[in-house]
Simulated scan of single mutants.
Amino acid sequence: MIVYLHGFRSSPQSFKARLLAARLAGLGRSAEWLCPMLPVSPAEAIALAEREIAARLQANGSGDAGDAGNARKASERVTLIGSSLGGYFATYLAQKHGWRAVLLNPAVVPDRDLSKYLGEQPLWHGGGSIVVEPRHLDELRSLALARVTQPERYWLIAATGDEVLDYREMLAHYPDVPTRLIEGSDHGISEFADYVDDVIAWCDAP
């Protein structure tokens, strides 16, 4: 299963999510794709992602997560792809569950970065808005990890031209993680179509 976690104010309609979904569909692998719409609350976003992943694994016959052996087998079937704030969530979930994760320009200190977005904020896709509350920053802080273990389970893709987040913070936060550093580009990785097949191949690797 490949699980995409979108970023702040984004959605499953982000262009990176749509590119990945279309590519997997072209490969006849749509059943492996999961891309939930995440709520504004980080705690609720994590809980939702865990519920949807568990439900999909159960539906696919991966076993009861309460069984240690089946839980181990289930974890081997999950790879996360997290973009921006979704990369922060993916890091937390991968560390907690032993899953693998591709991190696309991930947020490193989102409670700091989002402190200037308190209040009502418009969504990028489909209209509507969210309301960012101080408690959401506290929830973000509760998910912080000083470092990841088993860095080989992660792949960092960072763009030096990211206009929203500092790629140098990403490199410092994931010092031992295999990394593809893109010279230039932007926060959204506008040329992501050039990397879709590489990302899927990494997800498929043992």
Results as ranks from 00 to 15, higher is better:
3 V>T: 09
5 L>P: 08
7 G>P: 05
8 F>C: 13
15 F>L: 13
19 L>A: 09
20 L>G: 00
21 A>R: 09
23 R>Y: 05
23 R>H: 01
24 L>T: 02
25 A>E: 15
27 L>V: 01
27 L>K: 04
28 G>C: 08
29 R>T: 02
37 M>D: 15
37 M>G: 14
43 A>S: 15
47 A>N: 07
47 A>Q: 13
48 L>Q: 02
48 L>D: 04
53 I>D: 03
56 R>F: 06
60 N>C: 14
61 G>S: 05
61 G>E: 05
63 G>S: 04
63 G>Q: 09
64 D>W: 01
67 D>P: 08
71 A>H: 01
72 R>W: 06
73 K>N: 11
76 E>V: 03
78 V>D: 04
78 V>K: 00
79 T>H: 10
82 G>F: 06
83 S>V: 10
84 S>E: 07
85 L>N: 01
94 A>P: 08
94 A>K: 03
96 K>C: 04
97 H>W: 06
98 G>E: 05
100 R>M: 05
101 A>G: 10
104 L>S: 03
105 N>H: 00
108 V>G: 09
111 D>V: 07
113 D>P: 03
114 L>A: 02
116 K>L: 15
117 Y>A: 15
119 G>T: 00
120 E>Y: 08
122 P>F: 04
124 W>P: 08
127 G>R: 13
129 S>P: 14
129 S>I: 12
130 I>P: 11
132 V>A: 13
135 R>N: 11
137 L>I: 11
137 L>Y: 09
138 D>E: 15
142 S>T: 03
147 R>P: 04
150 Q>G: 11
151 P>M: 02
151 P>Y: 09
152 E>C: 10
160 T>S: 06
163 E>N: 04
167 Y>C: 07
169 E>Q: 13
171 L>P: 12
172 A>G: 08
177 V>I: 10
177 V>T: 15
179 T>C: 10
182 I>M: 01
184 G>Y: 00
190 S>L: 12
190 S>Q: 06
192 F>K: 00
198 D>Q: 13
204 D>Y: 12
206 P>F: 04
